[in-house]
Write a protein that binds this DNA or RNA. Structure first.
Lengths: 224, 224
DNA sequence: GCTAAAACTGAAGAGATCCTGACGAAAAGA
DNA sequence: TCTTTTCGTCAGGATCTCTTCAGTTTTAGC
């Protein structure tokens, strides 16, 4: 699978490249719309990550071109939070999905595979783990096809664990993800214990098996 | 995995220590180049975080020394944004990566594990020794494709042995690697005996052959 | 073989980590 | 505004891990 990343922030770009290559995607990058346009004309990509807030050009114009060219690439818009307009949200402009900065690389990865899956296999943006189904767009959880009433934090927590399935995730990482604050340092993880407890209880009551394992001294693991 | 943090800003240092210890790294710190030099001479680290803009000494000189000493440590340069020269960016000076302040601790963490992977494991995320598989990202050990649950110390111990496969590692080296304060020589290796015993037992019970040999008077060897 | 040093073992206390229920604060919804 | 829900903190207790210790076995050298 081949991905084009259109992004000018060097550090973010590097992170994305490293992560996505680690996920076995073939990645190329462009730091300007002009460079991107050239690449798109010459090569084909399964997915294009488009930062629409680059200096020196309007990303929406590029988006227009992309859609009229009826290429088969899936397109995910990336943008600062306050640049996400209702039009983008509604995906009226023809993108397949959008993600606002700052985002987590694991979430980006999930979106990419969802978009690619949909394009190639006309699926939807859901993640399925046995009886648990996560709908990324609706932000809902189904267990045995029945919705489970989770709070926002609980949903975030489950999604994060699910995106990192079969990996041990540290409490540092969880705390950062839940709080949305990527700068803060956490001296106490009590709130994680509480959310974890409630999440586990709700999933259990809904009839799910206990996929969330606690790994003493290391963190948690969503094991499927 | 053991890390040396060379940094004089106390607050930042504390954040880094707390975070990285939370990620199960064994961490030590030095607030000056002189202190750092001493530690580096006496002990070995898997990764060194080097702030090159400390007062009272030039970090680049220390970097030079580090590279000529051909130690196996990975080196990540940390510095204020405007001190990042093109040379550093190109990593011509021999560092493995660089990070400009301010940075996110999770980003630092990602860089560290990438550097360690590159240096020690030639970039791979899983190590395979016949029926034993070490997944560095999942932080999980598989024997015959089934997970074996190890404690932190047991996992670290196995990783350290695997890292030095087919070499004899002394108990001093193991002790230094497992427990943070490398102040003095250890007079008592009882805790190693216990961890080793438990590790061996768990691997054996999981159906693995006994690759860990005890070399009388020398140490241990992971023989594959 | 004998001896002393080194290595192993099981048990157990100390210590760290995690879970739980309850409660007030904060946020969201009516 | 008032009500309801969600969130984070806290303290007590449960659980798991680490280290130490004492007793036993193995090893190398004589």
């Amino acid at each position: 699978m081949k991905i084009l990343i259109i992004e000018d922030e060097q550090e973010l770009l590097n992170s994305m490249l490293t992560y996505l290559r680690g996920e076995n995607y073939v990645c190329e990058s462009a730091a300007s719309y002009e460079a991107a346009r050239q690449k798109i004309e010459s090569f084909s990509y399964d997915c294009i990550l488009l930062d629409i807030t680059l200096p020196g050009g309007n990303g929406l114009v590029l988006l227009e071109e992309l859609k009229t060219d009826n290429k088969t690439s899936g397109i995910i818009i990336i943008s600062a939070k306050d640049s996400i307009t209702d039009k983008i949200k509604g995906l009226d402009l023809g993108a397949d999905d959008y993600l606002s900065k700052p985002f987590h690389l694991s979430e980006l990865n999930a979106r990419i595979s969802a978009v690619i899956r949909r394009r190639h296999f006309s699926g939807s943006t859901v993640l399925t783990f046995h009886e648990i189904v996560v709908d990324l767009i609706a932000k809902t959880i189904l267990v045995h096809k029945k919705p489970v009433d989770l709070t926002r934090k609980e949903y975030d927590l489950l999604l994060y664990l699910a995106l990192n399935k079969n990996r041990v995730v540290s409490k540092n990482a969880i705390a950062e993800h839940l709080s949305g604050d990527s700068v803060a340092l956490f001296d106490n993880f009590d709130f994680i214990y509480t959310h974890m407890k409630n999440l586990k209880r709700k999933l259990h009551q809904a009839g799910s098996r206990d996929y969330i394992k606690s790994i003493y001294g290391m963190g948690y693991k969503f094991e499927v």
